[in-house]
């Protein structure tokens, strides 16, 4: 693997960690859903780098459409803000 791809993976894993921290710490559940969409995006890139394009296609299809829809439906029932 070329060092350029390693550099790209390093930068994207930084984004992945920050988005996961946002999911953990955010009180606004809509922001958490957006951050989970970003996590699924970057996980799809990582599956491609690990040479599993079929898993990457599945992750792209499910993470982009289905997960966000289900989480939005759940958030509509549960309420948007997390109360302490």
């Amino acid at each position: 693997m070329h060092s350029l791809i390693l550099f790209m993976v390093l930068g994207l894993s930084l984004v992945l960690v920050v988005a996961t921290l946002v999911i953990w710490l955010s009180k606004d559940l809509l922001v958490a859903i957006l951050a989970s969409a970003i996590v699924s995006l970057i996980a799809s890139i990582f599956f491609l780098v690990l040479q599993a394009p079929d898993v990457a296609i599945t992750e792209a299809a499910i993470g982009a459409g289905l997960t966000t829809g289900i989480l939005l439906y759940a958030m509509k029932i549960a309420g948007r803000y997390e109360d302490d």
Binding site: L30, I33, L34, A37, L41, S44, L48, P53, A56, I57, A60, A61, A64, G65, T68, G69, L72
Partner: peptide, 20 residues
């Protein structure tokens, strides 16, 4: 074959943004 992933992503990625 890796282009297929980008194709699926280009078709489906906007649904999340539109839903939100």
């Amino acid at each position: 074959i890796y282009l297929d992933v980008a194709l699926v992503y280009a078709v489906l990625a906007f649904t999340a943004v539109v839903a939100i």
